[in-house]
Amino acid sequence: MYRFLRLWRTPGFWVALFILSLVAFAGCAAQGGGGDYQAEDGQPLFIYVGANLKEPVSELIQSYEAETGVKIEQTYQNAGALLNQIATMKKGDLYIPGGMDFALKAREQGHGEKIMGPIAYHTPVIVTPLENPAKITSILDLAGPGVELVIPDLEATAIGVMASRVFDNTGLKEEIEANIVATLESPAKVLGVLTMGQGNAGIVEYSNTARYREELKIIEIDPRLNEIDEIPIVSLVYTTNQALAENFMEYMVENGPSVFEGHGFKTPVKE
């Protein structure tokens, strides 16, 4: 009566399961990979995008796709990891890192060609819990006693590198760094742990704070001490469709700032 329950014991069951999973996988892969729209040479554009820029860039890509019918594939990672991928794969058309340093590095290493922008700015800001227990009012206060600073890694993240330069500018680098209780992989994680009550101060990018205005206090850094980075777009030497890649670059420079602004970034002032 319950013989069908023992179906899994038969080899046929496993063969059927295997074939079924193959079909499902093939179906998904076809859906994801083969786009209806393709560029002139039959290849979609491929873009490496800094993870922190995901929201505005994917919005811009969608509108570009809708306007032109060109299919654009994207991969998101931190800028350094992306550069490794580019160096390994030697493929792709464009690279949008979160900082100019990475754009210049890409060109230095022979992967990047033309740099355009800035599309927007990366601006470090201080965040604290709403009640601000360490009583921070400026960047200099981060050197004070009782500060528990949580920060994106000072070398591995664009915002961390900038924060490190800001510390240099204050002349209190040692004191501030002594207050760091943890470094994390991204500004998003810094915001996450601060809202969970861990640490009492952090440094993130201005746009990251857009969703946290109700939960955290945002303290801007004195512009005389702050370091602001530009978000560029870089064409890669491996592009197989120079004209299309440049067309998208121009589209980004023209339409990028307003979309980035909508996502909380500071952008070049439009005249």
């Binding site: 931190n78 800028a79 350094g80 990891a81 550069l83 490794n84 160096a87 390994t88 990475f102 590095k105 949580v150 890694d153 070398e155 591995a156 993240t157 760091i180 209780v181 943890a182 470094t183 994390l184 992989e185």
Partner: peptide, 25 residues
């Protein structure tokens, strides 16, 4: 849970991740 703080909570996996992120593959 522990962060990726250099010389404090830096395991080998973290070290690999950090160097990868810097672009030093």
């Amino acid at each position: 849970l522990a962060g990726i703080t250099r010389m404090k909570t830096e395991t080998l996996s973290v070290a690999v991740f950090l160097n990868m992120s810097i672009g030093d593959m």
